[in-house]
Each structure stands twice: as C-alpha cells, then as structure tokens.
Simulated assay, not measured.
Amino acid sequence: MAVVRATAEPVEMHGFRFTPLASPSRGTTTLAMWTVTAPPGASSPRHSMTEEEVLLVQRGRVVAHVGDASWELAAGDGVVVPPGEEFLLDNPFDEPADLLACTTAGMRARVGGAEITPPWAL
C-alpha cells in the first residue's frame, strides 16, 4: 500500500496543467491518475493514446472531441477515450475546468507525429 500526498509538481503542456496523483513513481503498479486544469481558451492538439483513458469533469465545462464526435461535458460528466482514437479537449468557456484522468500506467501518446510518454503517467 502507498499513501499518495498532494505534493507533486504540476506539468504545463499545451496550455493545460497536469498534476500527478498516482503512478508507478508514486506507488501504483498498473494505474496512473492525475488532475487536469483547463483554463478558459485552452485547446489541446489532436492526439491519441496507446491505452484507454477516462476523464471526469470535476468543475467547469469542456468540449471533448473523440474521433468524429463531440460532447460538451459539465461537472460530473465523463468521457472514455478508446486506445488509438483521435482526441482533442478544449475549454471555449469563460471559466476554468478541472478534470480527473485515469489510464494504464506507462501510457504513451502520439501528438503531431511524435510519440511521448507523459511524465504524469510514469
């Protein structure tokens, strides 16, 4: 068992702030979980992940684009992004949004032709 403390330094990327909560470097074996803060006007590049990812809106609203579909999500709403599916998240609203994200530890993402391993999933 590991205790996860809220002491991790956030990582800024594409206008979003990612704060690790649980990952192998923080005591898990198979899962990674982090918070995402999307300020007003933030928009991620279109990308895909090697593993399924679940996002749950905790505060505010965002628009999730998965494949050819788009949904406006508010607090309490979630979206499941299948592995390999093109995904984009944006906040066209006037208020920031906070989300909780969970996936398989060690997930990799393909962004603009480059593959990265997000540091919050390690």
Rank of each mutant, 00 (worst) to 15 (best):
L122D: 12
E53S: 08
V63E: 15
E9G: 03
P45I: 12
E51Q: 15
A97N: 09
P39D: 11
V4K: 02
D94V: 13
R59G: 01
M13P: 06
N91P: 15
M13N: 14
S70T: 13
A74F: 14
G41T: 04
L31F: 09
G76Q: 08
M13E: 14
R110A: 10
V36S: 00
V36G: 00
V81G: 03
E72G: 03
A101L: 07
G60L: 00
V57C: 02
G15C: 06
P92I: 02
F18S: 00
S25C: 09
A121C: 13
T29L: 04
D90L: 01
E86P: 06
V111G: 00
T103W: 06
L122G: 08
H47L: 11
S44G: 11
S25G: 11
G113H: 11
M13W: 09
Q58I: 02
G78I: 05
W120T: 07
A2H: 13
T117I: 04
P83Y: 07
L122Y: 04
V54W: 09
F87C: 07
W120S: 01
R110H: 07
P92C: 02
G27R: 04
P92W: 05
L21D: 12
A64L: 05
R108K: 09
P45M: 08
P10L: 02
S48L: 08
G106F: 04
D68E: 15
T104W: 01
V3K: 02
G27E: 05
H47N: 11
T35Y: 04
R110V: 15
V36F: 00
G76Y: 03
S25K: 12
S70I: 06
A121G: 03
A109W: 00
A75N: 09
A8Q: 14
S70W: 08
E9S: 10
I116D: 12
R46V: 15
H47F: 10
P45C: 08
F93E: 01
G76N: 03
V57H: 03
T117Q: 13
E115A: 02
W120A: 01
A69V: 07
A109V: 01
S48H: 10
T30P: 06
A22R: 13
P118S: 07
A64S: 11
G60Y: 03
T50A: 13
R17G: 09
